[in-house]
């Protein structure tokens, strides 16, 4: 079990090295897809089917969004001049970070034996108190519903932000309607502008 997990994690690290160092942006986006899908397999092996489903589907959407950002633009990342000083400084910092994290992970609970103080109560009383047999859903929507409502708010705000940023630019002319400017497509607009598509 742990061997498989190690192999998959090393595979993720190789994928992310390729994603970081490739010059072509489309190749690096696809390498991110490799990392995400192997993460989904790891979740499935660790006894978390809910997250595995969500991770696989979200990974597809991340690929769609990132490919849309790279496909119609200048998709090579050639860097002619490098600033050496920030890179060296950051590498020293990362070395120190890894050193301290190597000592810090020894204080964590041993892999395979979690503490589960709060979670054992959830597991004991979850089915009786909520009636839901999926304990993850019971935690998500009953015991800790505040987190979920915060999550819904964050998703809502980020979507509104994307809408506002991508709306049609420019100040409003005197004879123009508001509707065109905030990015909502009317039926006439679709007819007028998408006849060629």
């Amino acid at each position: 079990m742990e061997t498989y997990l190690l192999v998959l994690t090393v595979f993720m690290i190789i994928g992310s090295v390729i994603a970081i160092e490739t010059k072509n942006l489309l190749s690096s986006v696809i390498s991110v897809g490799v990392v995400g899908f192997s993460l989904g397999i790891i979740f499935l092996m660790l006894g978390a089917p809910d997250i595995a489903i969500t991770q696989v589907v979200v990974e597809i959407l991340i690929l769609v969004i990132l490919i849309r950002a790279t496909i119609s633009t200048d998709n090579t990342a050639i860097e002619k001049h490098r600033d050496n000083l920030p890179i060296v400084a950051s590498l020293i910092f990362f070395g120190l970070f890894l050193l301290f994290s190597y000592f810090a992970v020894h204080d964590l609970p041993v892999f395979g034996e979690p503490v589960m103080k709060v979670a054992s109560r959830y597991l004991e009383t979850g089915v009786r108190e909520t009636g839901a047999t999926n304990i993850v859903t019971a935690v998500l929507l009953d015991f800790r519903a505040y987190d979920t409502i915060g999550e819904a708010t964050v998703l809502f705000v980020s979507i509104v932000g994307a809408f506002v940023i991508l709306r049609r630019q420019g100040r409003k002319g005197r004879g123009e309607k508001d509707v065109e400017k905030v990015g909502i497509l009317e039926d006439e607009d679709i007819k007028k502008n998408f006849e060629g598509f």
């Binding site: 089917p49 809910d50 489903i53 969500t54 589907v57 979200v58 597809i60 959407l61 769609v64 009636g131 839901a132 047999t133 999926n134 993850v136 859903t137 019971a138 998500l140 929507l141």
Partner: peptide, 20 residues
């Protein structure tokens, strides 16, 4: 979602994938 793996988040993203 309350009986088997899944729930609102996973199912919502799958439906959005269908429309996409």
């Amino acid at each position: 979602g309350h009986l088997t793996p899944g729930g609102g988040f996973a199912g919502g993203v799958i439906l959005a994938c269908g429309y996409i």
